[in-house]
């Protein structure tokens, strides 16, 4: 059933940002990939950065990590300080404008670059960076055209659908919409040997991290996080995975405070546990 508005004769705005374009017959060795590692992964979860780097290299890509990168600027902009973030945005563009693609293990950072860097003057390099920044899963599926990473992962896994990736980058169909279901994260995990992807009671409710929301509204943030973890627990997940380490950092913080027995693993680490 075709549910799109367009099929009903309604002209809608075409969304150019974040459109997937699969590069056919591409010689991946010729591509220059810039690796963007979000600030909190750099500082607190380097293993996620390492997994991302290793995975991309295993696939056969030339990956460079520009040393002067810092942050995408999201923490500032989401707190209302967009103007203060401009130098941060400019640093990002400076570090990444030379690459064919910029790949990052973070849906929210990529969303931020693609959507909110619109306040920069749209010079060619800014446009190039915005169009070519990809979250890891969508890069693998949409650009590389790969959906089977030969993973072996005999665990019960719950997929937490981080909001910016899901609704912002359209990594999947969000449950509010009357549309055919799909999920890029699930697609990459489905073929993993031994995996069981559990079904949640609420498939895409927000975890409550929300950046500075986590400290501006701490009680609500923690409540939302607890509810998410409990949903996974009720459905027997051993591991919660997501495209965003920020969500997982928040959930893990709650899990450890509550002394619950469930783990969080970033999608990059699962995808990297492969036999490529």
């Amino acid at each position: 059933m075709n549910y799109t508005a367009a099929s009903w004769g309604i002209k809608t705005q075409t969304h150019k940002k974040g459109t997937s374009k699969m590069v056919r017959n591409l010689d991946i060795k010729k591509l220059n990939i810039g690796l963007f590692i979000p600030c909190y992964i750099d500082q607190f979860y380097p293993q996620v950065g390492i997994a991302t780097l290793e995975l991309l290299q295993k696939i056969g890509l030339n990956v460079v990590y520009p040393m002067k990168q810092t942050c995408c600027g999201q923490p500032l902009a989401n707190s209302g300080a967009e103007k203060e973030a401009i130098p941060v945005y400019q640093n990002f563009v400076r570090n990444f404008s030379e690459f064919d693609y910029i790949v990052s293990p973070s849906g929210s950072c990529v969303y931020h670059v693609r959507i909110h860097y619109d306040i920069l003057e749209q010079a060619d390099e800014v446009k190039k960076v915005r169009q070519n920044t990809y979250e890891l899963c969508e890069f693998i599926i949409d650009v590389l055209g790969i959906d089977d990473l030969k993973i072996e992962y005999p665990h019960k896994v719950g997929i937490h659908q981080s909001c910016h990736g899901l609704r912002g980058l359209k990594l999947g169909r969000s449950s509010e919409l009357v549309a055919n279901p799909y999920s890029k994260v699930r697609k990459l995990l489905e073929k993993a040997k031994g995996i069981e992807i559990i079904r949640l009671n609420r498939e895409d409710e927000c975890c409550g991290f929300g950046g500075t929301f986590s400290v501006f509204e701490p009680e609500v943030s923690v409540k939302m996080g607890k509810d998410r973890v409990r949903d996974h627990q009720e459905n027997d997940a051993e591991i919660i995975t997501a495209t965003d380490m920020s969500c997982l950092m928040h959930l893990e913080g709650i899990i450890r405070r509550q002394k619950w027995d469930i783990k969080v693993v970033h999608i990059a680490e699962i995808l990297n546990s492969n036999n490529l």
């Binding site: 701490p218 893990e252 450890r256 405070r257």
Partner: peptide, 18 residues
């Protein structure tokens, strides 16, 4: 107030990469 901070690694990703 309601969460543990993440466990702190000795080195950042950048340091390890370097």
């Amino acid at each position: 107030w309601g969460r543990e901070l993440p466990e702190v690694p000795k080195e950042s990703f950048k340091q390890r990469y370097r």
